[in-house]
Amino acid sequence: MPIPGTIPLELADERVLLCPQRALWWGARRTLVIADPHLGKDDTFRRSGVPVPASVARADLARLSSLIGTLAARRLVVLGDFYHARPAAEDHGERALRVWRAAHPSLDVLIIRGNHDVHAGPPAAELGMQTVDEGELDPPFVFRHHPGADERGLVLAGHLHPGVTVLLGRREGRRVPCFHIEPACVVLPAFGRFTGTSRAEVSPAGSVYAVSDDAVTPLPRAVLA
C-alpha cells in the first residue's frame, strides 16, 4: 500500500522511498531506516523541570508502528541515538517502548550505536534489539551514525538532524527538517519530533528533500538561497 507524500529515489541502484514520517523505506529488503529518535528526551526534560508533553514520545512510536504496519516491514534499522539519555525503568518513554515492542514481536531491530547511546547504554536485553558499532555493511549500503564516506558502499547516516531554511516570501524563512543527499552519504532527518535541526551544508553535487507533515518535497536550490 502506497504512503501519500513519499518520493521514490534510486540510491546506489536500489529503489528507496523517502517518507514524510522521517523514514527511508528500502523495499527490496523490507527494511525501514530511521535516525535519531532520541527516545526519552521528553523524560529528561521533565525530570529537570522543563515541561515537555509525554505525548511526544507516544506519537513518535505510534508513527513508527503505523509505518511498520503499512509497509509490512520486517526489519527496522536505527542509525544511532536511539535513546537520548540512560532510561529509568519507570520512565514514561521506557514503558511506552515496551508496549511498542510487544506489538511488533517479530520485527528485527538493529541499532547502530550513536554518541548518545554510548552514555545511555543499549536497550534492555529482553526487548530483543541488537546494537552494533557504526560501519555495518548491508550492500550496497553502509549504516553509520556519523556521516562520512565508506569505500564499501553508500553511507546512510544520522547524527546531524539536517534542516534547511526555506524562503517563504521576501521576509520570512522557515527551518524544516530534510533528507540531505550527497554522492557518498545520505543523512536522514531526525525521527524524534522534539529534536530540532541543524543547518545542512549542501555541496554543489548534493540535494535536499524537505519534510513536512504530509509530504516530502525536493527543493530546488533557488528556494534555499
Binding site: 521533565r46 525530570r47 523541570g49 508533553p53 509525554a54 514514561h92
Partner: peptide, 27 residues
C-alpha cells in the same frame, strides 16, 4: 507541567513541602 489531564509524568518545578511550595530540586 500542564493541566491535570495532560500528561507530564515525573515533572515538577516546584513541590509542596509541608504547607509551602518550594523548588523541587537544587538543580
Amino acid at each position: 507541567g500542564g493541566e491535570a489531564l495532560t500528561a507530564y509524568p515525573q515533572f515538577a518545578r516546584v513541590a509542596r513541602d509541608r504547607s509551602r511550595y518550594r523548588p523541587s530540586s537544587k538543580l
